[in-house]
Design a protein around this nucleic acid. Structure first.
Lengths: 165, 165
DNA sequence: CTAATATGAATGAAGG
DNA sequence: CCTTCATTCATATTAG
């Protein structure tokens, strides 16, 4: 463990396409963030808060809890993984680009095709106006049940780095 | 969890099982290792290198690239999945065996899929003399175009544990 | 065509 | 921060 001690019972089960019929305790092990939670998390991340301090983490957790059970550790891990992944992505992209440039003069060796990725929830840099002052309603992204995500995003000014619109 | 890598264009169809004459081919989704690449990867894995460090991964990728487009990430994922699967397989086998032993006195229990798999390429532990010093030419396995696989396997001492025959 | 299987890829959780 | 393990998701291929 790193710096977090508050583990919470992961009542996490909500997700999964193969619906784990809640009868007879499927015993969901790891937390699966719901789409709304992901949206919030990504928004925060993209707003510039990539490494929230403990208090912020708690606040974020409370936000997320309205959309499903989640613990501080989950949030902490999420940011940690996100940061790591982001960085690696960048590096990889840079390396690939460099390699592409390097391979000049040679025959067509490998054309990097930007690796088409199709994931359930779009992954690449979601900006939902958390740090940026966008007035556009966020609901365009989700109109599924409980689209109160926007309420959070619009009505919450988290203590750190937010001049306010 | 990915490691560095340059993902590039998957050459569409990996191998044509029954319909080599594809009209609408692309379907660039995920990388499909070619037989030669699989051979190399398995050989390396069976030679004892189950978790190559980054530099080794790069080297391996360069090897594989001669047989088709591949990125470091692909190689890394391959080894990771291979390890994981190997381990899981072992565990399941162990568990099954233990269960069988435990159920003494009882009738034939419940053998879950007795693993009578008949696969195209025999799957269990291919050894092509990567770590072991086999003088037998490797081509017996593949005589398809560009059977330079053996060249690699015989003429490559990858910095790690190879006293030499 | 649909079901089952194999396997590449993504990600939560930890360890160091 | 980094790497690694376990679990899960998605798709390509093969069997029925």
């Amino acid at each position: 463990m790193d710096q977090e001690g508050s583990s919470q019972s992961p009542t996490g089960q909500g997700r999964s396409p193969s619906a784990p019929s809640n009868s007879t305790a499927p015993a969901r092990s790891r937390w699966s963030p719901k789409p709304e939670q992901i949206l919030i998390l990504e928004s925060i991340f993209n707003s510039g808060i990539v490494n929230p301090p403990k208090d912020e983490t708690v606040r974020i957790r409370k936000m997320l809890e309205q959309f499903g059970a989640v613990g501080d550790t989950n949030v902490f891990y999420w940011f940690q993984n996100r940061r790591s992944r982001s960085r690696r992505r960048q590096r990889q992209l840079q390396t690939a680009t460099a390699a592409a440039v390097t391979s000049r003069g040679a025959e067509d060796q490998q054309h990097m095709t930007t690796m088409s990725m199709h994931h359930p929830y779009s992954n690449n840099e979601i900006n939902l106006g958390f740090g940026s002052c966008s007035n556009s309603s966020a609901n365009f992204f989700f109109n599924d049940p409980s689209s109160q995500v926007s309420s959070f995003l619009l009505g919450h000014s988290s203590s750190s780095s937010n001049g306010g619109c």
